[in-house]
Amino acid sequence: MKPIYPSISLLLSLLIMSGESRAQDNVQVLDSSYTIAYTSKGVVKIYSSDKEGISNIKSIKTKGDYLALSPDGNTFAFRIYLDGGKTWSIYTMNIDGTNIERLTHAKNKWDSAPAWTPDGDKIAFAREYKDSEGVWQAEIWIMNSDGSERTQIKSLKGSNPYFTPDGKIVFSSEHKDKKSEISIADFDGSNVIHLTNNAAEEWHPDVSPDGKQIAFMSNRDGNYEIYVMNIDGSDQKRLTFNNAGNWHPSWSPDGVKIIFSSSSTDKESHIYMMNKDGSSVQKIISHGRKGIFQR
């Protein structure tokens, strides 16, 4: 299984853009107050919007993507491409773009999809590479939040780890006769349970704040769409219905909304928001990928 990730380049420095009219053209007013971090055209952006309009837009230029926010809301984990894209490494930085630290250093391996444990003490990540026989390997590792004590969870094969509030791991598991499926396991990798079971590509699970549901993307119906299911795999429902590719679902902190990125006819990726039942779909950000809510 070789997951598809959007390529975004980011540079380091901080730029406040709240007064720029062209930035305001890229967002729409929401019916509630939310703060969202996302990547757009090579820049990490953070914006807030409420019924009165945009309160601030901030851009952090750094060279990486695939943001994950720590439970205390103070630190991003993300990946950076190195060696011309041959090496991917996990980094962390403060939410204002300062204090960038490289956490993984494995050459010619793809480290991606960082995910914080509920207590913020550790970060899980996916590691993918071709072994000496040219066979693609998809592994899940875990380390302390400072990058120390990196350990492979050997019983887990796949990508896109994400933790439930009680510390279980939901992930996209590699399967011999299937492309990938959503699975759940205990923190140590034991008791793996497959939650989906078909020949589709199913990635990027995101657990609701109450731990009761999982949003994920799947092409089981021929096109990448956003789905939701209960934490035990029951009651699987399709939420999006369009001809675009829909990616990277993320729950709002109150569990009421889901945002996702979607490709459109202009071949650009934009960020949309919908209710957790799939209703009231609204485009909120133009030219954005992999949005996550901030607390």
Score class of each variant (00 low, 15 high):
G134W: 05
S155R: 02
K157Q: 07
S172C: 08
N144Q: 08
V135N: 12
D166I: 01
E133Q: 11
E133V: 06
W141G: 04
E139H: 02
E149A: 09
E133Y: 06
F171M: 12
D146Q: 05
G158W: 05
E149Y: 00
P161Q: 12
I140F: 03
I169T: 13
Q152L: 09
S172N: 11
V135G: 07
K168S: 15
P161V: 12
T164W: 14
S148C: 02
F163V: 11
N144Y: 00
D166N: 14
T151A: 08
I140K: 04
E139G: 02
W141E: 05
F171A: 13
E133L: 10
D146G: 00
I153G: 05
W136Q: 07
F171Q: 15
Y162K: 10
S148G: 06
I142Q: 02
A138P: 08
G158L: 04
I140S: 04
D166M: 01
E149V: 03
N160F: 15
V170T: 12
K154L: 08
K168Y: 13
T151G: 03
G147W: 02
V135E: 11
N160P: 13
K157Y: 07
K168C: 14
I153Q: 10
N160D: 15
N144R: 01
I153P: 12
I142K: 00
W141T: 01
S172H: 11
S155A: 10
F171L: 14
E133W: 02
E133G: 12
P165F: 06
K168G: 13
I140M: 06
G158C: 06
F163I: 14
K168H: 15
E149N: 10
S155L: 06
I140G: 09
S155M: 06
V170Y: 13
I169W: 12
F163N: 13
P165D: 10
S148E: 06
S148K: 04
V135K: 11
K157E: 10
Q137W: 05
P165C: 09
